[in-house]
Design a protein around this nucleic acid. Structure first.
Lengths: 153, 153
DNA sequence: TCCTTTTGTTAACTTCGGCTAACATTATAT
DNA sequence: ATATAATGTTAGCCGAAGTTAACAAAAGGA
């Protein structure tokens, strides 16, 4: 198990990879509001845990394991974010900051319950959640969309 | 501003004071699952911040400031707890653990939104929240009860 | 009273996650 | 091609929050 702080680095790296096609120490530092040496430390720890491949001055690449974990972390983040923004009506920016912090402390169990709840609420409002970072809908929404389509046929 | 960890100590001490009529290092350590030296450190920090009065081997007493802060912390905890238990349907024990962690990271603004939301939900279900640690209902529920009584008259 | 147990304190160490300062490497522009 | 700028690395430090081991003080029972 890696720490919540390391999870945050991993998540950020995953997003940067998707957004920019590469992961650079400087960019991670900017996104995380920290210094480059801190990023460097994180990289080495993540490497120790086989979550990424790296050697000095080289390319940073998440391993399969790293990517899978990043996706899981991101999904948790998105669920909390959605709740804060669309249910509690926090401003996008605040929801973002708060989601990060909350997601970092809660268990999978709570995330799951929250996911269920939020989807129920959105369902009542006939909305989809907009989880799309992986170019696909989240598990719950895929099911809902399928149900909806079945109805219309 | 004190750290979230110190807030947790303060909250625990406040509760122990209410429950036992006094605050002892050993009891705090038990409640917080930590060692006595850790509690000792916390006491000294809280003293530095004028949140409690203490001298070696003496009585631990929260100052007015300390008590006010403790109440605020506790209210935040209760709001999150209620949400987890009564809205997300987590088991009491889990809700307790998670609430502690979540409360420790979110802003007042988020707590307020959550409070509003939870009270709206409970209102729909015609329930009161059971915030009673201070032998009084929480601010929102007092208002609601008043409204309800007004209706019945 | 005095011995034992419980309670509280101190000192020194650990881990984590951050930092700065200084340096090494790579990329860029002229 | 080389000087400059940008990027990445290393070393050493810091504070927070915890720990263990050893000791001091207070409380209680015989």
């Amino acid at each position: 198990m890696i720490s919540k702080a390391l999870e945050e680095y991993l998540k950020t790296m995953y997003i940067l990879q998707k957004q920019n096609g590469n992961i650079r120490v400087t960019d991670v530092a900017k996104k995380m509001n920290c210094t480059k040496p801190s990023v460097n430390k994180a990289i080495n720890h993540l490497k120790d845990h086989h979550l990424l491949d790296y050697e000095s001055y080289g390319k940073i690449e998440l391993t399969q394991e790293g990517e899978d974990l990043a996706k899981k972390i991101l999904e948790a983040y998105d669920i909390v974010y959605l709740f804060l923004k669309d249910v509690l009506n926090l401003k996008a920016e605040e929801a973002q900051e708060e989601a990060e912090k909350i997601k970092s402390v809660i268990t999978d169990q709570t995330i799951n319950q929250l996911a269920k709840y939020i989807h129920k609420v959105l369902d009542l409002r006939n909305l989809d959640c907009n989880y799309d970072i992986n170019q696909e809908k989240c598990r719950c929404c895929v099911k809902r969309t399928a149900r909806k389509e079945a109805k219309h046929e």
